[in-house]
Design a protein around this nucleic acid. Structure first.
Lengths: 143, 143
DNA sequence: ATACTATATGCGCAAATTCGCATATATGAA
DNA sequence: TTCATATATGCGAATTTGCGCATATAGTAT
């Protein structure tokens, strides 16, 4: 970002947030967090979105810098969640409108399977293969 | 924008729109259009936002490319207005939330004065000085 | 201590964006 | 035609961004 007269103003802050959202991967991450309705850790997002770990990590950092997500570290795992503010709520409401329909359906489906691997609501495995995911789902009798 | 596997998808389209909005000047333009509740021409925006003509023109082009605004040419004047779609409505609703309060208040105030110079709802002057604007407002007994 | 795993980040390159300046285009008037 | 005005845009330099690769950091377990 360049220097503007109104740098650091709320207007600039809002612009930064929207600009940060202006990326397909970050939209997918935000959408996943909205739909998950709970904090999600990096490895779960990596599996759900089928991206490289460094990609997810870096995009999450951008979202955090923009004040859109917050972190909660639990041991080795870092859980990301939407910031709880009227500002971010307005944005996520808009995203739900814009991303409705078929968009990101695969992400949400994969995320659902991945979250099923949790124990006591906590992530207990790292990056996981597609096969393991499906095996686990079969075991649980889920779909 | 770079090439993605999902280039040209609706997801990319949404990302493009949000990215386009991720600029203070473009936010001010969008906000002005929302508040104006009517098509506004370039010279009116230039006066309202106190920016260079080429700046406003180029930002408007970006907004148009992103499918956020549309144009209606009447003689030399080109009127810009918000695109009428559920998509854009969702976005403008969000912007109203995010930009509420003191933000862009000056823009709206200036725009109001500038629109008072219209005759029969049409723009009849080009770029106008601050003094002329205030004189006209005084004549009209407005404010 | 070592090994393993989850997450974060430094580096470098290529592509994209922004901005100011100048100028082009287009419409209307004299 | 010529002039004036409203709008759009080509150019080039500086900045920013996204990505891949490799690696660093940090927590856990043995």
């Amino acid at each position: 970002m360049r220097k503007f007269a109104y740098m650091n103003s709320k207007l600039q802050h809002t612009a930064d947030q929207l600009k940060t959202l202006g990326d397909p991967v970050r939209l997918r991450i935000m959408h996943a967090l909205v739909r998950a309705c709970c904090p999600v850790c990096v490895c779960e997002l990596v599996d759900a979105l089928k991206l490289q770990q460094y990609q997810v990590s870096r995009h999450l950092r951008a979202l955090k810098k923009a004040g859109l997500v917050k972190t909660d570290k639990k041991g080795t795992w870092v859980y990301y969640d939407l910031v709880n503010s009227s500002e971010v709520s307005s944005i996520t409401r808009c995203l739900e409108d814009l991303l409705q329909g078929e968009q990101c359906r695969h992400d949400i489906e994969h995320l659902r399977k991945r979250l099923a691997l949790r124990e006591d609501g906590e992530c207990v495995v790292g990056f996981v293969s597609e096969e393991k995911l499906n095996r686990k789902m079969a075991e649980c009798g889920i779909e």
